[in-house]
């Protein structure tokens, strides 16, 4: 967990999605740090988190990840948090905000998807077979992860230089954890929770994104009463890397608004 930026500023918490780790925010966090107190962290099982804390049973669905978000809030005694969740972490924010709304001032859902798999009357973009194919890709790509290196890289937050020189180290994950996180992510369905969100919410999606296509962004926007939708002129599923300026502008402007006026009539 890394806390940076203005200690007296409003708190912006950045949660990474499935794939890499908090490095995903490297182009965004320093800019937000000028005006905000920025909290970055790695989900348990990702990046430099303590792998011993991971258990496939506990982290079988997104609820455990949402519980961790709330635990961080309690540990740092945070309230009025502006939670920014990328991809699957957006839904972790939704679950956390439904559970303890008093912790959160606002939610920013960056390319969210409440359900990746197509359903009757809903287009998530994928079939179950597609997800199985992804698991195959994970199995054949350990991205430089090896059992021998894992103890060196993981749990050495005090010596970050240890893993840096290795290629692909940002997305290094224990293959079994990656598999289990992929399942928790892509088999999740939290469409029903969206309507329960009571905090002001900004939905950010990209003009072209194969993982969260435009209709999914529109669906999330429609389900969360009073939410706002901004479509970034970006391609791909990681606008914080491909269009960092536009992403920062959107997050900062929304986070800086006085809380009471952010819910606008649609």
């Amino acid at each position: 967990m890394v806390v940076s930026g203005r200690p007296d500023g409003p708190t912006v918490m950045l949660a990474h999605g499935f794939g890499c780790d908090q490095n995903m925010w490297r182009l965004v966090a320093p800019k937000l740090a000028r005006d905000f107190r920025v909290v970055c962290f790695d989900h348990v099982g990702a990046g430099r988190s303590d792998l011993a804390a991971y258990s496939p049973d506990r982290y079988a669905d997104l609820q455990a990840y949402a519980d961790d978000v709330l635990e961080i809030c309690r540990e740092l005694d945070l309230s009025q948090v502006v939670f920014v969740g990328h991809s699957v972490a957006a839904m972790m924010g939704v679950l956390a905000a439904v559970q303890e709304p008093e912790r959160f001032a606002k939610l920013v859902l960056l390319v969210p998807s409440p359900c990746y798999i197509d359903d009757e009357g809903y287009r998530g973009g994928f079939s179950r077979a597609d997800i199985e194919e992804l698991l195959e890709s994970l199995d054949s790509n350990y991205l430089g992860w090896s059992a021998a290196m894992a103890p060196v890289i993981m749990g050495n937050a005090d010596r970050p230089e240890l893993g840096e020189e290795l290629t692909n180290s940002f997305c290094r994950t224990d293959p079994l954890i990656a598999r289990s996180f992929a399942r928790a992510t892509f088999l999740s369905d939290h469409r029903a929770e969206l309507a329960k969100v009571g905090v002001p919410t900004l939905v950010l999606d990209c003009a072209q994104d194969v993982i969260a296509p435009p209709e999914v962004g529109a669906f999330v926007h429609a389900q969360i009463a009073g939410s706002r939708l901004i479509t970034l002129a970006a391609t791909g599923h990681c606008p914080q890397l491909s269009a960092p300026e536009a992403t920062v502008r959107a997050i900062a402007a929304f986070a800086a608004e006085p809380g009471d006026h952010s819910a606008e009539p649609r």
Partner: peptide, 13 residues
């Protein structure tokens, strides 16, 4: 499609 998901979540970033 699976490769595309992998590309978007790992390769491209």
């Amino acid at each position: 499609v699976g490769g595309r998901l992998y590309h978007e979540t790992h390769f491209a970033p």
